[in-house]
Simulated assay, not measured.
Amino acid sequence: MKNLKSIALALVVVLSTFSVTAQTKKVDAAKSSINWLAKKVTGQHNGTVNLKDGALVFKGKKLVGGSFTADMTSLTSTDLTGEYLGKLNGHLKSEDFFSTEKFPTATLVFKKIGSKSPNVYTVIADLTIKGITNPVTFDITVAENSATTKFMVDRTKYDIKYGSKSFFESIGDKAIYDEFELNVNLTF
Rank of each mutant, 00 (worst) to 15 (best):
M1Q: 10
K5D: 11
S6R: 13
I7L: 14
L9S: 13
L9I: 15
L9T: 15
L9G: 10
V14W: 07
V14D: 08
L15S: 15
L15Y: 10
T17E: 11
T17F: 15
F18S: 13
T21K: 13
Q23Y: 09
T24H: 08
T24W: 04
V27H: 01
V27N: 04
D28W: 05
D28L: 12
A30N: 14
K31A: 15
S32W: 06
S32A: 12
S32R: 05
S33Y: 01
W36C: 01
L37N: 02
G47R: 03
T48A: 07
T48P: 00
V49G: 02
V49D: 02
D53W: 08
G54C: 09
A55Q: 12
A55V: 10
K62G: 04
L63P: 06
V64G: 05
T69N: 07
T69Q: 10
D71P: 04
D71N: 11
M72W: 04
L75C: 02
S77L: 07
T78R: 09
D79E: 13
Y84Q: 14
L85R: 11
L85H: 12
L85G: 08
G86A: 15
N89R: 08
N89L: 12
N89P: 10
H91N: 12
L92H: 06
K93R: 13
K93S: 14
S94H: 11
S94Q: 12
D96Q: 11
T100D: 07
E101I: 11
F103I: 11
P104D: 09
T105G: 06
V109E: 04
K111Q: 10
G114R: 03
G114L: 09
G114W: 02
P118N: 13
N119L: 12
V120Y: 02
T122M: 07
V123A: 01
I124R: 01
D126V: 07
D126Q: 04
T128E: 01
G131Q: 00
I132D: 00
T133S: 08
V136R: 01
F138H: 09
I140S: 02
A143I: 04
E144A: 14
S146V: 04
S146D: 03
S146H: 01
A147K: 00
A147Y: 05
K150S: 13
F151D: 03
K165I: 12
F168C: 08
I171K: 03
D173E: 06
A175R: 06
I176W: 01
I176L: 11
E181C: 12
L182T: 06
N183R: 05
V184M: 00
V184T: 05
N185F: 01
L186Q: 03
T187K: 10
